[in-house]
């Protein structure tokens, strides 16, 4: 089982919200990436959260800097619109790319990208919300825009077009700590024969075994449960975060009530827990 920390990146910072809203600044991507690499992460995901709205900045530098020191697979997503965008990110040191908005708008991009860079380089990211009729709808632009596209049908189509993996995120559960939407994960996993990475909602270790056993995922993407644990030990005194958004959490002024469902853990603790529960994973 692959444990994959996900860093949502806004400008020079790692941010985290709840249901993709109310983003808090948590620290520098370089520090998070190094810490997770050293503590046994199996891969990393960088998601540029504002790129598809405002254009790109700084991310390429972060990729280049970290890929020199971090020797595990790195997936980069957020605002990649063309073969050229994908090439640029890969040339900076990413191993795989995650595409969502551009793929929905132009599904042929998946085919072209898969032909150009190999299927194993192309992850299609699906962010979904459950509808009253029980179906899941795919959203784009970091969970802001509905598409009318059924998430399962889209996953099947993405596989046919040449996607190598699917990253599924439940928008409603994301950042809440209330557990994964295992129903969504299970439906997508059963719809495709390529690996599925599930994300959104982990609040404790048990949630991770649930998404593995009931959601049938092949990898788990995690943020809050790891991030909030890491920053407890992380000093921000040396960095200047003025004008960088909501830094209340870092400056200890935040109302942390909304985080009460997040029971932080290290990757080592998580992997030991998974191993005890019969899930094979790499111990570093």
């Amino acid at each position: 089982m692959r444990i994959i920390p996900r860093l949502d990146i806004k400008g020079p910072n790692v941010v985290k919200g709840v249901q993709f809203e109310g983003l808090r600044v948590l620290g520098k991507p370089e520090d998070f990436a190094k810490y997770y690499y050293d503590s046994g992460a199996d891969e990393l995901i960088y998601m540029d959260v504002v790129a598809s709205l405002y254009g790109r900045n700084g991310l390429l530098d972060i990729i280049e800097k970290t890929s020199r020191e971090i020797f595990i697979p790195l997936t980069v997503g957020g605002g990649l619109r063309s073969i050229e965008d994908i090439r640029t990110v890969l040339r900076s040191g990413a191993d795989k790319v995650a595409i969502n908005t551009a793929a929905i708008q132009n599904p042929d991009l998946i085919h072209q990208a898969s032909q150009t860079f190999g299927a194993s380089t192309i992850i299609v990211s699906i962010e979904a919300i459950r509808k009253p009729n029980g179906k899941y709808e795919a959203y784009v632009d970091y969970g802001r825009e509905a598409t009318g596209v059924d998430a399962c049908e889209w996953a099947i189509k993405a596989e046919k077009l040449g996607a190598g993996e699917i990253l599924v995120t439940s928008i409603a559960n994301e950042g809440t700590g209330s557990g994964f939407d295992t129903e969504l994960m299970c439906r997508i996993s059963k719809s495709v024969s390529i690996p599925v990475i599930g994300g959104g909602g982990a609040g404790c270790l048990q949630h991770v075994t649930e998404v593995i056993n009931d959601g049938l995922v092949d990898g788990v993407s995690l943020a809050s449960i790891l991030h909030y644990n890491f920053i407890k030990q992380y000093s921000v005194s040396g960095s200047d975060y003025s004008n960088e958004g909501n830094v209340q959490y870092l400056t200890h002024q935040a109302n942390t009530a909304s985080l009460s469902r997040i029971h932080g853990a290290t990757i080592t603790e998580l992997k030991q827990y998974l191993t005890r529960n019969g899930v094979a994973c790499r111990q570093s």
Partner: peptide, 17 residues
């Protein structure tokens, strides 16, 4: 594509550690 002890399909491509 084969199955593990819990009868879960092991997907191809083989991706991971």
């Amino acid at each position: 594509t084969t199955y593990d002890n819990d009868n879960r399909p092991l997907k191809v491509p083989h991706i991971g550690w």
